[in-house]
Each structure stands twice: as C-alpha cells, then as structure tokens.
Design a protein around this nucleic acid. Structure first.
Length: 875
RNA sequence: GCCGGAGUGGCGGAAUUGGAAGACGCGAUGGACUCAAAAUCCAUUGCCCCAAAAGGGCGUGUGGGUUCAAAUCCCACCUCCGGCACCA
C-alpha cells in the first residue's frame, strides 16, 4: 500500500483538471445553468489567510455537487484591485501600484490553486485593467448623462489619514472604514451619485430576495424610511416665507411650542434678529468646528434663540425659532417642530431653555411605570419628568380632542393640506453617494470642465425636465448637443465613449496632496486638454472613483470578460444572469451589496440589463478568528496563512477542516489541532481504500430484503449498505442547506462503521462514497477513484449518487420505555409496531417491572417508532 | 436606547413539527506496540452519590410556567457578539 502523501497527488490532479478544462463554464449549454459567485477579494500584499477560503471552499463544495448533479456551472474569480493599500505601498516604496498589484494577484491565485478551488480561470477579471474599467467609466457616464451624477461642493466626511473624502457608508462609528482614524469634515467639490432616487426600489425589492434576514434588516435600517408629513410654519416677520419641517408625528402638532433649525439651515441668518445675531453666529461657528462624532456624542442639548417667531399652523399660536445642533442639516429639511411633551430630545431642550411644554396626547391607559403619571406628582405645570412618546388619545388639540393618535395622523394632515400648509411625506436616512476620491489608484472620472461650454449652457436658460421624465434627453445649444447631465452640471462635459478607457496616467508622486486635490492634478499635460465638444481648452476631472465602483458590476463582466464592444453581450447576459448564489462576508451589507443593487437597478432602467436585482440568493460566511479569539490582522501579528498548513496536512485535510470546524455562518476561532482530526480521517479512508475486502466486497448471501424482515446472515453488510445510503442522503441535504459541518461528521460516522464492520462494500457502492466525499476532498477522492477505475475520466464527470429510500429506512429502532417521562429501559423493536405490541415488549422488561411495582398505570403515551411512556401513581 | 443573533461537557460543536441531551472532532486518562519517543491501534471520558458494580440523583445562562415529556414552547430577567444610533 502506498502511503497517503497529499503533496504528491494534489499537484497531479490540479494539472489534470486544468488540462481537461472540466471546470470551464459552457456558454449556452443545454444543461441548466447555475451562476455561483464568491465576493472577489482585494489582493492585498499579505496574501490569503485561513479566514478567506472559508467561503471559497464552501462555494467550491456546492459547485462540485451541483456540477455532479448535471448543471452547467459558472464559477469565476477575479480581483478588486483598486484601493488604498497598493497606493500607500507605492508612496512608501515608489513601486507603481500596477506592479505590486500584479505580484499580489499572482500570489493569491497560487494560493487558491493550492487549495484546489475549481474556478473557471478563463474568465478572470481585474478591475484595474483598462479593458475592464473602460466599462466602469462607461457606466459612470450613463449615470452622468441621465442626470444621476451631480457635482456639488459639500462638507463631506474626510479621512485625514487616507487624505480622501468618504461616502457615508464608509464611515463606521465616526471612523474611517479602512484605517480607523476619526473622520473630519472638509468642504470640497464632489461628484455625487443620486442613490436616493432609488431609495424606494432598493427598500421594496429586499422582500423578494433570498438573503440573510440580518443583511436585509441592515439595509432597511440604512435606507431608513419614515412616513409622516411635511408641515409649513409661516414666519411671523418675513411674511411670504415658510419654515418647512418633516415629522412622523403630525398628531402632536398642537403641542409644537417651538421650532428648531439646524445651524446650517439656509434661512438662519435671514431670520435672526439683530440683537441675537452675535450669539447665533457664534453658535454656528462652534458647530462648524465640531466633528460629526462630537456632535452626536453630545448628550447635553445646546442651542440659541434667533429672536424670530413662526406660527403653529394648527394652534395658530406664535412660537419661537431656535437653532440647535441636535437638529441635523442633512435629514428632512434640517428643521423640526419641537414637541417637548412627546419627544424626549425636544423635552430636554425645552427643560434647559425653559420653553413651554404642552401635553396633547394622553396615554390610552396610564402606564404604571411612567414617572409622569405617578400619583401626587405635580403634573400639568411643567412637572413632567420625561416625554410620552407612545400613541394615545388627543387632548388640548381643538376639534381633534378625543380621537386616537393613529387616526389624527391622517386627519390633521388632511385638514392642514386643505389650508395648503401640509402634505403627507416620506423621508429616508439614505444619503447620496459621495463618489469622488482624492487619490491616485482608482478609475479616472471621464469628465472635463470647459468654461466655454459652461457659458453656453448657462446662457441658454434651458427648462430642465425632471430626470424621471427624460433621463436620456439631449439638448441642442448652438451647434452643440448636450446631455441632461451636462445641462445640470454646466461646464462639465463627458469624455466621448469612443475615447474610453480614459487611462490612469503614470505619475511621479503618489502622495495625496491633502488639500482635497488628487495626485493627478499635478500632471499638467494630462489635466490640460481640449473640450471634446467645442475644442476650447479644458481641464480634466482629477478625482478618481471610490474603491466600490468596480465591484458594482463585476459579476456582469464574467459572463463575457473579453468583449470590446459592450460591457457584456446581451445574449450572454440573458443566459447567465442574474447571479443565482452569492457568498461572502457580511461586512459589505451597506457598501458593496447596496451599491451594486443600485447600479443594477439603474442599468435595468436604462434597458441595459433585463433584471433588476444582481444576487438572488446570498449567504454570509462567518469570520474565522485567530486562536486568541481576536480578529486576524497583520498589526496584531496573529494571522495564520494556509500555505504551511497545506504543506503539512494537505489541501484536502485543510478543506475538510474549514468545513467541519463549525456552522458556516458563525464566527469561529482557528484551532490548528482540529485539522489533525480531518487528516486522520483521510488517512483512515485511505487505509480502507487499499483493503480489498472493504472496497471490493462480494456478498455471499442474497441481496438485502426490501421492506420488513431481518436476515441474520450478512447483517453487517446490510447495516453498512443502510449506513451508506443514509450518509448519501444526509450529505446531499446538508450541502443544499450549507450545513457542511454535519455532512463531514456523517461521513466520519460512516467510515467508523466501515472500519469496525466485518464485511465491506462492493466496488460500485464504494465509488458512491468517493463521489460524495469529492466536493470536500477533491484531490483525495480523484486519486482513490482512479485507484478503482481504469479511466481517463475525472470523478467530477461522474453522477451524484442517489440514495435508495428503501435502504435509508431502518428496520428496527430503539424503543424508549419511560416511566413518568424518565427513560428506564430501551428495547430493540421492529419499526412500525403498535402500541399494544410496544406495551407487551416493555412489560416483559425486568427493569420496567421493577419500576412499576406497587404503582398504578394511569395513562400510556405512545409515540410511534420512538417511545412509550407509562404515567403511574403510587398506590 | 433601538434592531438582529447567540448562551449546551475541559474545547469546537450535534440534537428544533417537544420524545434517551452531548453525534462528530479536538483534548485528557489508561493500555498495546517501541529500548524510548512520535505515529498508530484499543478502552474510558458531562457532573455528583456509593469502596466497586448494580443502582440512583443532578444537568443545555438565571428564575418561573405549560406538558406524560422542554435545550426546543410561553413569561420575566442576565450575559456575550454584530449592526444602527439626537434620523425629527
């Protein structure tokens, strides 16, 4: 017998598969298609650690399984290679990101091949390849022309360490998602994508996706839809002007005793009375200096009075207008109505500045624990301890007194609507996507700025239709045709499609300037260009696209990775897409997963894609933590690489252990001892494979009887058969449900039994076991398959075995005999026996007799093929 | 504070239409093989009582409840992890 030496066999079979090309997807094959995708990695310099492959191995298991089931599978891999680490590395070493990226990709690929992952490498893509990002730019221009990309100077989140602006989604707890440094504010011109235009669709479609509830919930919260009303408060002084607020509680309008504007509100200075001007300006200054985090951490409410008054449209009373930084400028209208009796924040503010508190909602039943309702408490004279935020019955609300708040929410808005002072409204927390990065290593934004065009567009005074009505309209000005985007952003002109890709120029210094300009700005002969429309001198946009741009659509490119005419052939898109099954980490819940849904919805509206959701089914793998229970990171020095493990234990033992260590979707700490267990398992299977009587058994007795009845002869043989088929069933079901850990456990159980058994399996049955093992341990199974089969076929060209339902069913079971719910004996009994038979069997047991002595049987509970329970009472 | 998920041996975990808790693996202990060790093989391995066996009791975060029977269902609470957080 040869020794099991994974190092010898793994390389051999990897080359065998590659030469055969059996893992390549066939376009338009007659087999049913299945597109299963891993989130493609950023090829970092550190290479893969043991956490990465967890998802890759899981999809690989599924891929093998589903191929064996007869599907035409698309399972590609590529590189999300734009990003800061490569650029930072370039700053440090002067090595161009393209070069370091190339090196890293080679390393990643080598590691993936080492694990034996069965990707279709003929479709490999790389987001930094100009032939790829040509289409990223092309899609950006679609957004631009449709009026969904706009240029605006905004105070945005700025990472002082990465020296770039960030999207809302990239700020985690006030810190930069990448480097963890606290985010500051910076006001610079930005390209912004109008993701908010898709808020409703992004929210609604979630319901139809087979995604983890957790991710869907996170997206729902992120989009943050609230229903309520817009209400106009007439200003006391500037007669024609209104302050508009959004509220989810129009039923409390009679209790609005003041207004609060965000310090950034555009009307603040206009309405402020001269005698309050100084205080207001000071407050605005102070707010400007505050970081978003500080502003949100502030517990104590602060604010200043503007001296101005507005009129409560329901109560008709004059109410003061304040400014305070607890009102955020970017939500709603940056202004709120203060209802201190029914909003805790307003309550705290009112308490602090002695503003009137007016109760307008009475709780339906006084809640016992509410301090405001305690007896003997000084209520009604501003003695409230906290706001009552629940629903209830209206009081102090004129003609609406006595009705329920639910009802009032509608009636009051309708009443105010008639007076032209309110309307039903919906608001979202989602904000538009800040799309510019002041860094080098990203896709150049293919736009130029032309002063002549700016003048032309501005002077033309065009009536702009809403983007919804005319997303792709063209406008003729003099001899030039402008798109909607070019009209909405005067002076900005798109680089013509035929000039794409607009390639990233070589630069001498990668160092970000920190002033808000990209390193590209220093390359004069690149920046200075001619306007593609009118030929006047123009300047290129020097910001680049964010990290997430390329990953928004990469799954589309895999279906036709080399197409030069379009992002992918329509027929291939129709055949392969959308992605049937997507696997990756949960950390992208509101980044990549939201952005790519947005892009797909847009491309669908543009008629470019025939589907509007990219990923039908999504599953997240749990994080693999370092043995110390911490997240693996280079800085902590606790990273474990797969290379050495594979060298020592083999790729198959590694794969098995990654699947066996715990439930796929739960985080788990790495334990190297565990891989020893799966290696031992393989060694035992190997030994069995070389034992003729175990794998080439010829039964000397008749085949197993169908149905009931037992034969003593060949008992071991039948019980092995049965066990094998139960294992096939369990492994099949577990792969479908991604319960890989129990699938592996079941195969181990089977092998234990086979080891112990006096008899063995016939060759054709042994083959079935090798096939169900093959997705987990492909090299190993292929080797043993060729040991029993003279063939140049691969095990992966076989068929997934069907289990025999007759064999899966057991003939006997352990009847549990309970007395008062406690198990007192077990008796082997034939499956399907009746209560009477079971009772008869049980009463024969000495143990049971003993327990029943001196007791009266009150009741018998019988569960078929499981247990019988005697309920007794002491006589 | 709000939303989501989870608490089971020394460890990772199994068991969910309620039906023997601890599958499988790791570790540990004893033994075989060996000059010895590693590897391998065999046995034991939730805790407690009993000299041992037989036998019995306890046991799935805590407290209560429903039930012949609860890790599983209900109520209250505790802890941990993840996400969001002055969103009007």
């Amino acid at each position: 017998m040869e020794k099991y030496e994974p190092q010898k066999i793994e390389k051999k079979w990897q080359e065998f598969w590659e030469k055969k090309g059996i893992f390549e997807a066939k376009d338009f094959s007659k087999k049913p298609k299945f597109y299963i995708l891993d989130m493609f990695p950023y090829p970092s310099g550190a290479g893969l650690h043991v956490g990465h492959p967890r998802g890759y191995i899981a999809t690989d298991v599924i891929v093998h399984y589903i191929r064996l089931k007869g599907f035409n599978v698309l399972h590609p891999m590529g590189w999300d290679a734009f990003g800061l680490p490569a650029e930072n590395y370039a700053i440090k070493t002067g090595i161009h990101p393209e070069i370091s990226t190339k090196k890293n990709i080679a390393r990643f690929k080598e590691q993936m091949k080492m694990i034996g992952l069965s990707y279709d490498w003929s479709r490999e893509i790389n987001t930094t390849d100009p032939n790829y990002y040509k289409w990223t730019q092309w899609i950006f221009l679609k957004f631009f022309h449709a009026g969904l990309a706009y240029n605006k100077t905004l105070p945005i989140n700025w990472c002082p360490s990465c020296k770039t602006g960030l999207a809302n989604e990239e700020v985690v707890g006030g810190r930069c998602e990448r480097c963890g440094v606290e985010v500051t504010k910076k006001e610079i011109p930005q390209w912004v994508l109008k993701i908010t235009a898709y808020a409703e669709k992004l929210l609604k479609n979630l319901d139809k996706l087979d995604w983890p509830e957790k991710i869907k919930e996170m997206q729902r919260n992120w989009i943050g839809r609230s229903e309520g009303a817009d209400i106009n408060f007439k200003l006391k002084t500037l007669n024609s002007k209104f302050i508009k607020v959004f509220t989810t509680r129009p039923d409390t309008i009679f209790g609005a005793t003041f207004l609060v504007l965000a310090p950034e509100h555009p009307l603040v200075l206009e309405i402020t009375k001269p005698e309050h001007r100084e205080g207001v300006e000071k407050y605005i200054e102070k707010t400007k200096k505050k970081l978003d985090v500080e502003r949100q951490e502030e517990k104590e409410k602060t604010g200043v009075f503007t001296g101005a008054y507005a009129v409560n449209p329901a109560a008709g009373k004059e109410i003061p207008i304040w400014i305070a930084d607890y009102v955020l400028p970017y939500y709603g209208y940056g202004a709120i109505m203060g209802v201190p009796a029914h909003d805790q924040r307003d309550f705290e503010f009112a308490k602090k500045y002695n503003l009137p508190i007016k109760e307008v909602i009475k709780p339906p039943l006084p809640p016992k624990s509410s301090p405001s309702q305690k007896e003997g408490e000084d209520k009604g004279r501003g003695g409230l301890k906290e706001a009552y935020e629940g629903e209830g019955i209206l009081i102090n609300s004129g003609q609406f007194n006595g009705i329920k708040s639910e009802e009032a929410k509608i009636k009051i808005v309708e009443w105010l609507k008639e007076k032209g002072l309110a309307g039903f409204a919906v608001n979202y927390k989602l904000r538009d996507w800040i799309f510019s990065r002041q860094r080098y290593w990203g896709e150049p934004i293919p736009l130029v700025f032309c002063n002549e065009c700016k003048k032309r567009v501005e002077s033309a005074n065009i009536q702009i239709p809403s983007t919804k009505q005319a997303p792709n309209s063209k406008f003729q000005i003099q001899n030039y045709e402008y798109s909607l985007g070019e009209i909405l952003n005067p002076g900005w002109v798109a680089v013509p499609e035929k000039e794409l890709p607009l390639t990233l120029p070589k630069v001498e210094k990668y160092q970000p300037t920190g002033t808000g300009e990209s390193p590209l700005a220093s390359i004069r002969n690149w920046v200075e260009t001619k306007c593609p429309k009118c030929g006047s001198s123009a300047r290129r946009e020097t910001n680049t696209m964010p990290q997430w741009a390329g990953s928004c659509w990469y799954f589309i490119r895999y279906v036709d990775p080399n197409n030069e005419k379009t992002l992918a052939d329509k027929k291939l898109i129709e055949y392969w897409l959308p992605v049937d099954f997507y696997v990756g980490g949960a950390e992208h819940a509101v980044l990549h997963l939201l952005y790519s849904r947005f892009w797909v919805k847009f491309l669908y509206d543009q008629g470019i894609l025939p589907f509007d959701e990219p990923f039908l089914k999504l599953r997240n793998q749990g994080l693999i933590l370092a043995p110390d229970g911490q997240k693996m990171s280079k800085s902590k020095g606790n990273v474990i690489n797969p290379d050495d493990l594979i060298k020592e234990y083999g790729a198959d033992a590694f794969r098995l252990y990654e699947m066996f260590m715990g439930p796929f979707d739960q985080p788990i700490a790495w334990d190297e001892k565990g891989i020893l267990g799966t290696r031992r398992f393989l060694e035992r299977v190997w030994k069995i494979a070389f034992s003729e009587e175990k794998t080439h058994f010829t039964p000397s007795h008749p085949p197993p009887p169908k149905g009931r009845g037992r034969i003593k002869e060949g008992e071991d043989y039948f019980s092995l058969q049965r066990k094998l088929h139960q294992t096939i069933k369990k492994v099949t079901e577990d792969i479908e449900e991604m319960k890989f850990n129990t699938a592996v456990a079941k195969m181990m159980e089977f092998v234990n039994e086979l080891e112990k058994s006096k008899e063995g399996l016939e060759k054709k049955e042994w083959k079935k076991f090798l096939i169900i093992l093959s997705p987990f341990a492909p090299h190993f199974a292929e080797e043993l398959y060729h040991q029993i089969e003279e063939t140049d076929k691969s095990i992966f060209e076989e068929k997934w075995p069907e289990y025999d339902p007759e064999l899966v069913r057991e003939e006997t079971f352990q009847l549990i005999v309970q007395i008062n719910g406690k198990a007192r004996d077990t008796i082997e009994a034939p499956v399907g026996i009746s209560e009477e038979e079971a009772r008869g069997l049980s009463l024969k047991s000495e143990k049971i007799q003993k327990h029943l002595q001196g007791k009266e049987i009150k009741k018998i509970i019988f569960v078929k093929d499981k247990l019988i329970n005697f309920v007794v009472e002491q006589i």
